[in-house]
Design a protein around this nucleic acid. Sequence first.
RNA 1: CGGGGCGUAGCGCAGCCUGGUAGCGCGUUUGCUUGGGGUGCAAAAGGUCGAGAGUUCAAAUCUCUCCGCCCCGACCA
Length: 568
Amino acid sequence: MRWSRTLINTLRDDPQEAEIASHKLMVRAGLIRKLSGGLYTFMPFGVRALHKVSQIVREEMNRAGAQEILMPALQPAELWERSGRLATMGQGMFRLKDRADRLMVLGPTHEEVTTEMICGEVSSYRQLPCTVYQIQTKFRDEIRPRFGLMRAKEFIMKDAYSFDVSYEAADASYQAMYDAYVRIFKRCGLMARPVEADTGDIGGKWSHEFMVLADSGEDGVIDCPVCGYAANQERAERKVDASSGSSDGAAIEEVATPNVRTIDELTAFFKCAGDCFIKTLIYSADGNPVAVLVPGDRDLNEHKFKRLLGVKKLELADDPTILAATGAPVGFAGPVGLTIPVYADQALKGATGRITGANKADIHIKHVDLARDANITAFEDLVIVGTGDACPKCGKPLQLKRGIEVGHVFKLGTKYSESFDARFLTAEGQRELMVMGCYGIGVTRTLQAVIEQNHDADGILWPASVAPFAVTLLLLDPKDAAVCAVVDKLEKELQDAGIDVFVDDREDRPGVKFKDADLIGCPVRVVVGAKGLAKGGVEVKMRNSKDMAIVPIDAAVADIVGRVKALV
RNA sequence: CGGGGCGUAGCGCAGCCUGGUAGCGCGUUUGCUUGGGGUGCAAAAGGUCGAGAGUUCAAAUCUCUCCGCCCCGACCA
């Protein structure tokens, strides 16, 4: 392919709308163009790299025994009513009506369609296990699309679904996908880390996310450098020693605290540290008020709390609810005397001598002894874990990092099998529920993550496996017939050798071509110019190295092919 | 949805406060020039100044409403 015949435009300046390096580079290098918020066109170079990623995914899925299928993006909403997710995921789905006024959705994921399809096809244990996958466009009405392809309204996902006769068998299917994911990200040139993750609305018992560590990542990743424990911050746990509050044995004492509500205001007012206080939060859990206590210097992890309560909807209670539940306006809630369920973080077990709200306006109480003064429903791990907290496995200090979620594997169990009555006949003639797993890779997100993790100040450093072209050939003197002849010869011979080669044949000065070659970032750069030829050949340089070699023309193809082969 | 910022040529921006019929750089086209890390010169094309309403003799500029984009939060496989 030649630049002069290609729809590729590079930009000198960073696009105004881009914030992170990979987004800027994808636009500057001419890989993508924005249509609207969260909607992008893949330009020729972008689509070539995308197809490379897709092909790696496809090869590894096939190798793991999964079968490729392709399901409709447009789906009847009725399917989603059956699983109950029209209500729980409804906000995030694009909806439309067909001419018969039937409600349709654009699929954000395909558990429903897959399970419905498998119901009709699989009826015997002899057909199991069965894992299907597709690489397909997904639609999600994201609240805030951002960072280019990282969080888009329309994106390409590889989603796979496994069906098994038992939980033990499902574990094997899960492990096969887990192993395939490790290989996929490695082949894409990514350092991706499996971490324990929250299952969220998709349901299921257990899941792992594959995280690409990057400062621009949207997720917090808790990492133990000693024992290897790693978890999404949404799920991460910590080890806590029995609380050692200073028990003064004193009785509760009211203190007037007019307009002192927040922990910051309280620490200033009482002149003591945040952990002297117990923060009391009132939540509405599926409409019922509940209280939750965390140490004053900690934040509640709503994901953990929601999982503990087992509710569908959990949100901070509104002011009237708080007034009704505690008898006091916002800012003065406390555990003493509450009649609603009160959950507390495990670190508060045995807490004494603390300060809490008094459930009266403008009053706090001190010398609170939780065991003595309050009725706690349960002590659980409920706070957001951060740097310095103790690892739940080994007790050593944890670290908080940022990560990009490029893949997620779930053990679903029978959640969808039950909704769709997906059963099979056992050897004994019993009808039993299939045990499912589901497995996603954000293909477009993975592509951008590759750039986020492989770039420098000058541009992209493509891993050879996903580079739009393995070799970029710079024709420095397009008016020099001898130079052109060398380029023609190299281009043809490299193509014959199966190498993807891109020729910059523009009528531009060398500096422009060098800059653009660095920006676009193909792994091998071959410069063909009159000066180089006079020195004895063409110049071969790797994008990730400063070293440049002059290679005689006759030896050039073998040299370049050797370099490309060594990369993959 | 709450807070903040922005919308002027394909891209990046100035002009707006203090109203007077739109400018710079890049890119594009043409000619010359240059020819190994974003050459130089000259000419040219390209704009309903996000949309609508209002104030005014006159609005990119002031007022109001709406729309879009970006960031933080909330929220979200």
